[in-house]
């Protein structure tokens, strides 16, 4: 087992309104080496918070994230400060994820030299190699980020993450900010890199069609909890949770042109994380809710060896 997320909670108190944002509410997940876990969910589901916790930018309010049986984060102090985290992050916005005053070659070189990952004389060739791996030619290494396209910047971000030789790469909406014709390129690159280097990914997105394309296992999140977990084809072919079903139905499908299906599978909107409904957080929008759903939080229970659902109406 590579990474174990065990019953993690994250709460952000808001001082002015004396409320609490419940970003994560008891989430448990495992990521094994060489596997790609896809996390899909809409705004407020806590997917980006989870990414920040894993890389150590923040600490969980409760619960533990362990890395090969060592407690990675606990309490208020984060033990990875000034150390290279074994999980690296690729951000959504290619415009703010690179230092605008640092040439891209220097951006990669700094990772290697700051942590003495290579001998001095090998650093140059390593930088060139990393850029080449992500499809950036060597003669671009003296450019500044603003001289690169969005797709190229995202490639540099990926190279920077690779330079740290991480155990896990977290991709937080890595293609959402890119133009459609460039997205495919970056997705293909991610798939190629995984094959070539045996990388482990946590791929986070609101876009199920992207998550579906790259993930081995998909976790569907809703308001800080996992509501369904399974291999990618199980989740897509045989979704069990009513929220997963709605999410799949909501993807615009361009393979079938014609009159739109006007039936809306899911009414209402995601409640605010400051005020999460009691019981199953989804019951207020759920088409199959029964009175009991507002009383108990359903646990993620297996329905098959590889697929689990958190719904008391599905798992009976």
């Amino acid at each position: 087992m590579t990474l174990v997320i065990d019953n993690v909670f994250k709460k952000y108190p808001i001082r002015q309104s004396k409320t609490v944002v419940n970003a994560l509410n008891g989430i448990s997940l495992n990521i094994s080496k060489g596997q790609t876990l896809g996390i899909v969910g809409e705004s407020g589901c806590g997917k980006s918070t989870l990414a920040r916790l894993i890389v150590g930018l923040e600490s969980p309010t409760q619960g533990a994230i362990t890395w090969r049986d060592n407690v990675l984060l606990r309490g208020s102090k984060n033990q990875w400060r000034n150390h290279l985290s074994p999980a690296q992050l690729v951000f959504q916005d290619p415009y703010s994820s690179l230092n605008p005053r640092q040439r891209i070659g220097e951006c990669i070189r700094e990772v290697i030299s700051a942590h003495n990952l290579r001998k001095k004389e090998e650093i140059d060739s390593r930088v060139t190699e990393l850029l080449k791996v992500v499809g950036i030619s060597e003669d671009m290494k003296n450019r500044y980020p603003h001289q690169l396209s969005g797709g190229q910047r995202q490639r540099v971000s990926i190279a920077r993450a690779l330079a740290a030789e991480p155990e896990l790469i977290i991709l937080d909406e890595p293609v959402s900010a890119l133009d459609v014709s460039v997205r495919a390129d970056v997705m293909n690159l991610l798939v190629d890199l995984r094959k070539e280097f045996g990388l482990t990914y946590l791929f986070i997105s609101h876009d199920l069609s992207m998550v579906r394309h790259i993930s081995d296992v998909i976790a569907v999140m809703y308001l800080g909890r996992v509501v369904e977990l399974g291999t990618w084809d199980e989740v897509l072919d045989n979704p069990q949770h009513p929220y997963t079903k709605a999410l799949i139905a909501a993807i615009p499908d361009h393979s079938q042109v014609g009159q739109m299906d006007l039936t809306v599978s899911l009414e209402g909107e995601v409640p605010s994380p400051t005020n999460i409904p009691l019981g199953c957080a989804f019951h207020v929008r759920c088409p199959i809710a029964v009175p009991n759903c507002s009383k108990m939080i359903p646990q993620l229970l297996p329905i098959k060896s590889s697929q689990s659902v958190a719904c008391s109406e599905v798992v009976k």
Partner: peptide, 11 residues
Amino acid sequence: DYIKSARVLGY
């Protein structure tokens, strides 16, 4: 994000 990234990179 590039400052967050710098922190994750352990600078």
